[in-house]
Amino acid sequence: MRRVLPPLTGLAMLAALVLVFLLVPTEADMGIVQRIFYFHVSSAWVAFLGFFLVAGASAVYLWNGAPTADRLAYAGAEVGVVFCTLVLVTGPIWARPIWGVWWTWDPRLTMTVVLWAIYSSYLMLRAFGGGDAAIARYAAVLGIVGVLDIPLIVVSVRLLRGIHPAVITRTQGGTGLADPWMRAGLLVSALALILLAAWLVDLRVRGAQLEDEVAALRREMDARRGEVA
């Protein structure tokens, strides 16, 4: 699995680029800028996957205290925040020509920025809360509470005024993805980003594991040195 992830990610990326920039037709109303949508929406999906990974791994960590679960949760938050940032960057690039403003307090924008803030605060807690092992437990509590907040955020932001296109469901007057190439473009982009995210999570988990091993070795060296002296 570890061996095949990088080449698989590369292939999927290439396929996504070919699809989005060569094969998918240009959207009639919005023009060329609409092509950013394939990466924008895929990033949002990956961010959500990352945040659910945080919650799932956190619950497992509170249950059995396995260090791997804790590392998975941490990596999930890091990758989730990175892709959530991508959503927040690609969105305005599209919004400026289409809506005429970089930012609006539309429900989905509000939700994305709130989720970004929640999981950024998770990373802050881990980075600055102190090195104690208890931090992993506190972070797990936050990871679970964060995911419980998501449905509430989804419902509450609907109380705000919205103008976001509902592309897939067509409920709010969106145009939908009529062209099969467009659907393929979205699916392959999503696949490519999911593979990329999985690779990154794997790298971060292994990195964290190595860090812990190095720290343990260093402590053992210090202890032996102390006994000799």
Binding site: A117, I118, F128, S156, V157
Partner: peptide
């Protein structure tokens, strides 16, 4: 935790958005 004066608003405010709305 360390930096507790900053930590509480940092953790709490984003989670409170639904309540605030």
């Amino acid at each position: 935790v360390r930096a507790r004066e900053v930590m509480l608003p940092l953790l709490l405010l984003p989670l409170l958005v639904p309540l605030l709305i």
